[in-house]
């Protein structure tokens, strides 16, 4: 286990959705496809955001226990690292009121932009209740 500020880094796959930059843990991403995949799920539909635009990519996510799903996202899609010390828990009022149940944390990057970290498993879990 690393302390958040000891130089540890988190591998993520970044992508866009509705004009925002999101990411999932890279360990969940098994493959990226350049063409539509059967039974894929659009990220905008899962997050209930506005309609997709621009070039698309398809990520195969490994949710564990042998379950894989395909997630359609918008370009640019990049493999990246973020410093573990830059990952921030959601403020409690955001965590309580957000309609994005898979939103797990965020990173405020050096340029002031935000990177929204999604929990890949929760993205495909049925909403509570």
């Amino acid at each position: 286990m690393h302390a958040p500020d000891d130089g540890a880094r988190l591998n993520v796959v970044r992508f866009s959705a509705a004009g925002h930059t999101f990411a999932v843990e890279a360990r969940r991403v098994r493959a990226m496809h350049l063409s539509p995949q059967p039974q894929s799920h659009r990220i905008e539909d899962l997050l209930r955001l506005s309609a997709p635009a621009g070039s698309r990519r398809w990520l195969t996510l490994d949710l564990g226990q042998g379950r894989c799903v395909c997630l359609e996202v918008a370009e640019p899609v990049t493999l990246d690292q973020v410093a573990a010390g830059d990952v921030r828990l959601l403020p409690p009022l955001v965590a309580a009121r957000t309609t994005l149940p898979a939103l797990a944390a965020m990173v405020v990057e050096r340029d002031g932009q935000g990177l929204l970290l999604l929990d890949g498993v929760r993205l495909f879990s049925p909403p509570p209740g």
């Binding site: 828990l89 009121r97 002031g112």
Partner: peptide, 22 residues
């Protein structure tokens, strides 16, 4: 910083010396 999926009364988050606050 605007966050999608929040009610209109929640403007977003700010960075206060490294801490993220709603």
């Amino acid at each position: 910083y605007f966050l999608p999926g929040c009610p209109p009364s929640l403007e977003g988050v700010i960075n206060v010396r490294g801490d993220i606050e709603s």
